[in-house]
Design a binder for these strands. Structure first.
Lengths: 140, 140
DNA sequence: CTGACTGCAAACGTTTTGCACGGTA
DNA sequence: TACCGTGCAAAACGTTTGCAGTCAG
């Protein structure tokens, strides 16, 4: 659990309870859709409006506090900004897990884009499959 | 240009003009959003309904003829199913370019997921940046 | 105290649906 | 001919907006 108030203020955003609760939920779950964030924060803050969640997610993405993680065939999820990593997306339960990025991969991708004269800004590696938990459930 | 009628029939889909035009547009442009497909096919088939485009895209994705390419902050695009490749997504013009996948990357990712007991089904590598064309336009 | 933020409700754009008609096989 | 597919219009849905009231700094 981080100091969300400081994180917000460092990005020119007021530290409201709504925003801190949103950030806390996202950090607890790792990756969340707008709906899931709304449902979760509603538990501790029953007057929360869905519009407020939308406005804040958009704002925090603009300010570089959050990143959108687009997922094939589903609504996007959001995560806190952190070091480059790989997403393991479970096609059964929808959960997303982070894995550290290997230096070799990084180097390969940079080499590729340099040859193409493509000014690389952001890498995104998503691996879709069935997570260990869901594999075991199918087996049982 | 491929034989779209055969491709459709091989996937239990009737070869209508709407579907063949949709596939031809996607192959010509590489990657297209629903709107762009609609606009394009409308030129040669003015009675086309947007609902028909939606129904067919969904159907062809289910049947494995097309794949959805999710893009951060934008509507998804669609492409014909083809060998694994990397997407270079231009953040200026929105264009998506395909690059062949290096065997080393593939091996690395497989090793990673095997160690995690993750049953890998699909890899997706998207690199965001500025394409050569847009870099030159900014310079001029 | 003041501007930024929230919650509400309405507006908006996109996607989906149901149905009668038309076209493929 | 039988069914699948299309086009239309309406419905459903997700997201955005405007505004009056509230709160953090």
């Amino acid at each position: 659990m981080r100091d969300y108030a400081t994180l917000l203020k460092a990005n020119d955003l007021k530290a409201t309870f709504q925003r801190m609760n949103i950030l806390e939920s996202i950090e607890n779950y790792g990756h969340m859709s707008i709906d899931a964030i709304y449902e979760e924060v509603l538990k501790t803050h029953p007057s929360l409006s869905l519009a407020t969640v939308y406005k804040n997610i958009i704002l925090m993405v603009e300010k570089g506090v959050l990143v959108e993680v687009p997922i094939t065939g589903k609504k996007p999820k959001y995560e806190l900004v952190k070091d480059d990593h790989i997403h393991l997306v479970c096609t059964e339960c929808g959960d997303v897990e982070d894995k550290p990025r290997m230096q070799e991969t990084d180097t390969l991708l940079h080499t590729l884009t340099n040859n193409e004269h493509f000014k690389l800004e952001k890498q995104q590696i998503n691996l879709y499959g069935v997570c260990e938990k869901c594999q075991m459930e199918v087996a049982s």
